[in-house]
Design a protein around this nucleic acid. Structure first.
Lengths: 197, 197
DNA sequence: GTCTATACTAAGATAGAC
DNA sequence: GTCTATCTTAGTATAGAC
């Protein structure tokens, strides 16, 4: 990586990274190519040298996020062990993906489905959700989960808890991946109440 | 309410309700006054007879949502009882507000802070969050919560779980307010694990 | 209470020079 | 790889008639 002088000379990855950051700060629709140009210190039209258009910036980030999430379910550990161990693995691994791919996953979780591209991404996300719900259902049937809660509601609340991480996790903050995953698993399986050993 | 004939003849409340619905479907920025006009079956300019502009449509909804949330903390039940009863009350009441004010709260929880109006609303929301975090902290100090979790992380995860309700609750669905509040309280305090009585 | 017509602004994107 | 200049479209909002 030789030191550059003069003009910035961005490559595609840098342009995309800056765009994703702005999309997350202001929302996709509220982010203009002018804002991105200003952030990079180049003109609007220079951006079109690197990417075909605004939508491809979004597409790249969503595809990355979805590939990582889908990888959680295809990972060997999500298939081999007992059903409740699988569930714990999927919870922990999903937390890991959220944290490692924070900007990309954040974009995914905020989609509204306004365009065909967004709707395709939401379809893939729904497929992930359905597989997870099936896993919770299997755990319930195997007797690993208490019987007074509906598996579908449980799935939504627990993954709502996990997904909320994107709202407050900061990579430069004091919390590490494992601490957060431990807290999620602790609350999800055993709750907050202090109880005698 | 006499039957109207001919032109729709909307009042301000109806215009705002339609706008909030569209804002939630497509996002505030992605919703144009043209879309709102089309939805109402009137022209764009007719909307300006009812409201000063697009931003006031948002303002009305945010103010309503914040007043209801703030009401949870000023309600007598949130102040009188023991500290862990207060916490359970606040969880249940917050679920209630989310469900009763679903469209308005949804808008609030999706804000990005792009304008002074949005930033003022986010400030009020943060004040609510801080009061809740203090309540969780007080519960922990009183020994009501297990000691191996950080109160701040607990607060964020539990309210992340509650806030996720806006992503999937449908008023015409099979679940009632109390069922959801029960599930939230059950998971938050006791977790999913099946355990011998 | 709603209309048509229009002013004004900003957006995404392209052409061609350097 | 970036620039200036420009095109096209779409947005919020206003003026004034009905």
């Amino acid at each position: 990586m030789p030191q550059r002088r003069g003009r910035p000379g961005y490559d595609q990855e840098q342009v995309i990274a800056a765009a994703v950051d702005l999309f997350n700060r202001h929302g996709y629709d509220a982010t203009s190519m002018g804002m991105l140009a200003e952030r990079l210190g180049i003109s609007k039209s220079a951006i079109y040298h690197h990417v075909p258009g605004k939508e491809q910036l979004l597409e790249h980030a969503l595809d990355r996020a979805l590939l990582e999430l889908e990888g959680v379910l295809t990972h060997p550990a999500a298939q081999e062990r007992s059903v409740d161990q699988r569930l714990e693995y999927v919870l922990r691994a999903t937390v890991g993906v959220l944290i490692d791919e924070l900007p990309n996953v954040t974009l995914l979780l905020r989609l509204r489905g306004n365009t065909p591209l967004e709707r395709r991404a939401l379809d893939r996300r729904r497929a992930f959700d359905h597989e997870v719900a099936a896993l919770v259902e299997a755990s319930a049937e195997a007797g690993a989960l208490r019987g007074d809660l509906q598996p579908r509601v449980v799935t939504r609340l627990v993954f709502g808890m996990i997904n909320s991480i994107i709202e407050w996790y900061r990579p430069d903050g004091p919390l590490r991946r494992e601490e957060i995953a431990d807290s999620v698993v602790a609350i999800a399986f055993d709750g907050l109440r202090s109880r005698p050993a």
